[in-house]
Write a protein that binds this DNA or RNA. Sequence first.
RNA 1: CGGGGCGUAGCGCAGCCAGGUUCAGCGCGCUUGGUUCGGGACCAAGAGGUCGCCGGUUCAAAUCCGGCCGCCCCGACCA
Length: 477
Amino acid sequence: MGEDRGVTQKSKDFSKWYTDVILRCELADYGPVKGTMVIRPYGYAVWENIQKIADKMFKETGHVNAYFPMFIPESFMKKEAEHVEGFAPECAVVTHGGGKELEEPLYVRPTSETIIWAMYKKWIKSYRDLPILINQWANVVRWEMRTRLFLRTTEFLWQEGHTAHATYEEAEEEARRMIEIYRKLLEDYLAIPVIVGKKTEAEKFAGAVHTYTVEAMMGDRKALQAGTSHNLGQNFAKAFDVKFLNRENELEYVYATSWGVSTRLIGAVIMVHGDDKGLVLPPEVAPYQVVIVPIWKSEDEKIKINEYVRNISEKLNAAGIRFYYDDREQETPGWKFNEWEMRGVPLRLEIGPREVASNSVMFARRDVPGKETGSVENVVGLVKEKLTVIQQNLFKKALKFREENTYRVSSYDELNEAMERGGFAIGYWAGTLEDERKIQEETKATIRCIPFEQEGEGKCILTGKKTSTLVVFAKSY
RNA sequence: CGGGGCGUAGCGCAGCCAGGUUCAGCGCGCUUGGUUCGGGACCAAGAGGUCGCCGGUUCAAAUCCGGCCGCCCCGACCA
């Protein structure tokens, strides 16, 4: 028995634990080019589940999918000043094609605002053409200095919604609608509690009027921006000269939004729910919601158990439950228990001679210790019920953890203290952009957001000015 | 780009700091056969390595010296 079986203890070295989990569970592997990542089938299956859920919600709110090119002419990138400033340094640029130097370098999209708005210019003439509610599932490239599997890689997968509207109010409504969808995606499906709010001037997206965010607390008490939605106002329409004739027959610039979530969400799931044994997946996105491990000694038992499991499999299939029957003979049951626990499967069914004899099933939940038995007749009902409970319990545990590590602060000293300890700090804020930078420098923490949920009035923790604005401070990824 | 660490079998590592018959080793995994199987089974037999790359020192280099390359972790930029 070697010592390299499991993963590094989460409490011992969170960072190492995180990469261990990803590599050992075969979610992903390092690509040959620095900063790149191969998403392996088990990890990609999680992404596909996230995609399915998100895509359905987008469609339900009137959005349609499309695909825009990955190559963006350099001149497009330079049209929106703030945008260039924000992205140019981290772009990959193609200078050669077909063996010749290109006349105009092509940027590999770091995000698609520019190319999409160049197209919208062709498509939008009148208010009757609006709104345009397009989403795209794509890869983007950002030449990051420091990368980390799932959280920040040179190339990553995401969805980016790009909408065009006739009024500011409509764009604002859209931006808020989408951040609410992200909240739902995170909380109801990934079981990750989030704080929904607005980004400060210092933290907002390059080229946005407002940026909304969902912020989550990871297992090391750092914050992760899990999804963003921007009200871009008329900035991109102006940069790309996209005007429409409104009802009053006047030319007006179009209003825009953009919003996205990425494969970073998988990193969030790992860091929020994982434990010392490894990955813990919420049933809603787990590639396998259930794993069935058979236990047999004799050939005779094997035949009976296979038959018994076939019956269960058919029922689970019919109920649309994603499961895997691990009947490999080269591994022992004990080995499989550990393996699937490490891989985060929410629910395990153990079927041996005892279960067959008593028409029962042994259940082991990933989120709590211990096992319990249930009747095989009701196996689908029990599985469904347990998956629901697990899903809820993961959310509750994550919420409890966040609350235990969130502090109300009323002075700069208290903020410093809280940031030393780690976690979120909530306090009143009336500082300037410079004050914000100062805080970041001194505490290494940033204002994650101005939560939508506000209450009361108090004194700014830095300036002492009276304000009704509460903000969340935290160190972040 | 700064700081730290690491490149030796598929993976994890020991051996380098006192160069040479403990120098090509260990654990896991892999292959074959058998016994096992309700919490990471055991026995036996096997396969597997340009010691990251280039150069130098030396009778002799995984080991010492110089250069290069790559990766990971920690900081500054970011979803």
